[in-house]
Design a protein around this nucleic acid. Sequence first.
DNA 1: GTCATTCTCTGACTTTAGTCAGGTAACGAG
DNA 2: CTCGTTACCTGACTAAAGTCAGAGAATGAC
Lengths: 299, 299
Amino acid sequence: MTEAAIQQIRRFNRLVTRRVGALDQSYLSRGRPLGEARLLFEIGQGGADVRELRAALDLDSGYLSRLLRALTAQGLIAVEKGRDDARVRRVALTALGRAEVAAYDRLSDALARSFLEPLAPPERERLLAAMAEIERLLSAGAVAVACEPADSADATWCLERYFAELARRFDEGFDPAKGAAAGVEAMNPPHGWFFLARLDGRPVGCGGLARLGAEAGEVKRVWTAPDARGLGVARRLVAAIEAQAREAGLSTLKLDTNRALKEAQSLYRKLGYVETARYNDNPYADHWFEKRLSRPARG
Amino acid sequence: MTEAAIQQIRRFNRLVTRRVGALDQSYLSRGRPLGEARLLFEIGQGGADVRELRAALDLDSGYLSRLLRALTAQGLIAVEKGRDDARVRRVALTALGRAEVAAYDRLSDALARSFLEPLAPPERERLLAAMAEIERLLSAGAVAVACEPADSADATWCLERYFAELARRFDEGFDPAKGAAAGVEAMNPPHGWFFLARLDGRPVGCGGLARLGAEAGEVKRVWTAPDARGLGVARRLVAAIEAQAREAGLSTLKLDTNRALKEAQSLYRKLGYVETARYNDNPYADHWFEKRLSRPARG
DNA sequence: GTCATTCTCTGACTTTAGTCAGGTAACGAG
DNA sequence: CTCGTTACCTGACTAAAGTCAGAGAATGAC
């Protein structure tokens, strides 16, 4: 990581905060403090629970309460008791509020347009492509992998998506109860471990490790959310699983996969897994892989 | 300019302000309000005039005065009367101040590093390349071309650089008094016009138009500052000159150029200028170009 | 030297942003 | 029904950021 690279990034940061930061200034043009404007924006056309807003904007509950009252006084929002849980208050835009949010939207659009307008068409293409690239790479950098219970809410969410995707993609469909049905317990200590990948707190992938015996473990349920593919999420999940396996003293990792999951097979090959003989009776498995782990580095 | 493009840019803006905005938070870790930290950073190793600081950070003079006093009280800066003009006060960092700025520099570096660290080397390359691209294209978009007197301070600055560059690049050297010596008056109304390109207020290029008669004009002194090359500055200057020429009822533009200025020749060709016979006795000219202008669009 | 202008500082504000310690109502487990 | 918890509100703060009018010194044009 050279000095020049650091300087390039710092230059980029300065330029971009300056240019993009102009948005804050233009938001002020509507005569409302930024805090209120941001809150209004966050509420959005669909409305939101006060609780969500507090989490999303990281505001003190007293402070948020006052902001909401200010917006109510301006006739932009209406706050009412939640239906399911009367403690949780629900915020919705009034007609006036919707118009106001639309106005802020136009300001955002205008800024975006001002980036494109002075450019010739081929340069526009390149700007958009470079932005997409940066978005992708910065997101990839912000993905965090952590071990957590395989039956946590987010883990369950991931597994459900995973099973749904298998059901869609396997020629033969997929029934979790029938498949590698080793349940969630197999991926919780002491039998195994489960990892979640998160992007800004939102789960974007998962993967589990289950002991097969004293020496071997199995890589299971490695999945990446569709909108986070291409960020190296699966690669990092497998890396976390391998690190855990070494830590636990396992020397071999095995895994199986279905013929429909081409990208999984190519990932495993790339990561050093080699195809091997059938080692289980999973009815959905068509390919079996194995990798010998090197001894853990000692500190 | 499609809706999708606008949305892409807005997504980029959101992501980048979030990620890069983390810098503000980390600046706070030094226990100093952001306003003071930014000011300290802006003063920089070289020091600055209070006037410059006020312009750069767009601060109220009373507010700035108080911030400076706070930093002085912390022993970070020293403010003294300016040498040339005793009204303009000069701010310099103390040893303690330099150490503090260095600490903020390290925070900036750490953020930059945190973008790179999670990425594999080829992805790092791509991130840096994309950042450079965006920097280039956003800068290009922010270049503003405007007509102004050819003897303004910034115009003079540009012309001096231009002449210095010619002196360096021409085999035969360059003496402004001898060359196409038609002075500055030829490029001021009513004989002509002079255009400056600015990036964030800083001049980054110039170009002039001088009448050669009732029908023809001459493109002169088109120059781009070295650090702004590749942004299409010259192209936009020539476009402004051509628009002005049409407006003034001219039907032909001529120009001469030296054999050393290859990139100028290729630009002019690309913009529709065709090489023609010598039309003046400029001793530094080796090539002469001409372009017929289409009639101005009527509104 | 006069006078308008420029640059900065001071004092007296306001607004925005944010924090903290209760307090109340609703909920959910027992 | 009780009781601990959650979600939100209220009041009473503080700190940061920003504004404005006016004063005083230095400057430059005349």
